[in-house]
Simulated assay, not measured.
Amino acid sequence: MKVLVAGGTGFIGSYLCRALADGDHDVTALSRSGGETPDGVDIATGDVTDYDSIAGAVEGQDAVVNLVALSPLFEPKGGNVMHDRIHRAGTENLLNAAEEAGVERFIQLSALGADPDGDTAYIRAKGQAEAVVRESGLDWTIFRPSVVFGEGGEFVSFTKRLKGMFAPGVPLYPLPGGGKTRFQPIHVEDLVPMLVEALEADEHVGETYEIGGPETLTLRQVTDLVYEAERKGVTIVPLPMPLAKIGLSVLGAIPGFPMGPDQYRSLQFDNTTADNDVVAFGVDSDELTTLGAHLGGR
């Protein structure tokens, strides 16, 4: 199968391209600015916000996987309007190019909680992108993962960066709301085989899967695991959410500060599955990699 992986040089993309190439697929990574690819993977340059730049790369493909995304953890350069430009409009361009080229299969990486009327620009744009996918004439599958971790990912480093924003240079860690926000982290090497199977098996066409890891962890528990793995002491103290809101709103107005009001709002709702759909891929959640095991093996 000829597969174009949009965002193929990114964190998840690099793992997926390698897995697809190892499975004897003909793989091309689409990237806005080039980059390195695993052995056996071609690269094409194109920006999903510019239809003309990607149409040629889509031509001749059997399937397209859309992994292009901005991080929900940080406010993007250009403001939150970029979420709509990248996630909704970018997805629309990929779908239009795929339909024009006669591509049959389309895999969309969305996010837990994706909702056109959601509380953050990221969640709204992801929800609107899902609607565009469902309205297409392609054989589509949508994945909604919780946070994805692994070598090269940003989730672990985010917890340390968050401390640097609120309490630089001191052994105290004021976590917004005491770190009660819950996540269900999934390891990238557990997620990728499911993406591959969705490409190869017709039974996944027209399905939307909520995917999480083997355990639910609060932000406080994640932070404890990260600092314990590095054998560093840190004292976590609750930062009341109203103060966090004021802090992020004020600091978010400073050019270059990476967080803002949307990130405050994202910390007010959990990032967990209602029913973990890993079972649709014959996977027992107890077999998945825990965050603690990953950190302990680094």
Rank of each mutant, 00 (worst) to 15 (best):
A229Q: 05
G153S: 13
M194V: 08
R134P: 12
R161K: 06
P168R: 11
S146R: 07
L217D: 04
G164V: 02
I246G: 15
G233Q: 12
P240D: 10
F143L: 02
L195E: 01
T141H: 01
P193H: 09
F158D: 03
V237W: 05
K163Y: 01
L217E: 00
I236D: 13
W140T: 07
L199G: 05
E130Q: 03
Y227P: 03
E230K: 08
K126P: 12
K245Y: 12
L217A: 14
M194P: 00
G137P: 10
Q184F: 06
L239S: 04
W140P: 00
G153T: 04
G178F: 10
L191T: 13
K232H: 03
V205D: 02
V222N: 06
L248N: 01
G150V: 08
R182Q: 04
G150C: 12
A125P: 02
I211S: 02
S157G: 10
F183D: 02
E230Y: 07
R161M: 09
P171Y: 11
A167S: 13
G137I: 14
F155Y: 11
P174E: 09
F158S: 11
Y173E: 01
K245N: 11
D139W: 06
V234Y: 07
S146K: 05
G169Y: 08
D139Q: 06
L199Q: 09
W140Q: 06
V222Y: 13
L239R: 04
E151I: 06
E215H: 04
I236P: 10
V237E: 03
P193D: 11
G206R: 05
A129P: 09
V222T: 14
V196S: 02
G127R: 11
V234P: 08
T159L: 14
G179K: 01
T159H: 15
V170F: 14
L248W: 06
H187N: 13
K160N: 03
E215K: 04
G247R: 00
D139M: 07
I123F: 15
L217R: 08
D202R: 05
Y209R: 00
Q184P: 13
R231D: 12
G152L: 15
G247L: 05
L175E: 14
P242Q: 00
T216G: 01
